[in-house]
């Protein structure tokens, strides 16, 4: 059985990606407040939704990264041949 080793740098990278997702969700919330002319209180009152959106973006990033990894692997296998 192949061992999967999660290193400190892996964790740091994942945390950084989630942080980017969180910042993107905050920007989305700010855009919504401006666009729908609602209260700035929602910056923190809707933090639960912001966190949920950040997790969804983070999960979406797995899909995107997986896709690029797949393409990268296919290209490298073709070059080996």
């Amino acid at each position: 059985m192949k061992k999967i080793i999660i290193t400190g740098s892996h964790l740091k990278r994942e945390f950084f990606i989630w942080l980017l997702s969180f910042i993107a969700a905050i920007i989305l919330n700010i855009y919504a407040i401006v666009n729908y002319e609602t209260s700035w209180v929602e910056l923190y009152s809707q933090i639960g939704y912001v966190v949920m959106i950040s997790i969804m973006l983070y999960i979406a990033s797995w899909g995107i990264r997986g896709f690029f990894l797949l393409v990268k692997n296919l290209i490298s296998k073709r070059d080996e041949k």
Binding site: L28, N29, Y31, A32, I33, V34, N35, Y36, E37, T38, E42, S45, Q46, Y49, V50, I53
Partner: peptide, 10 residues
């Protein structure tokens, strides 16, 4: 009262 902006956006 309107729904929070983020909900309206979603």
């Amino acid at each position: 009262p309107a729904a929070p902006g983020i909900i309206q956006l979603i």
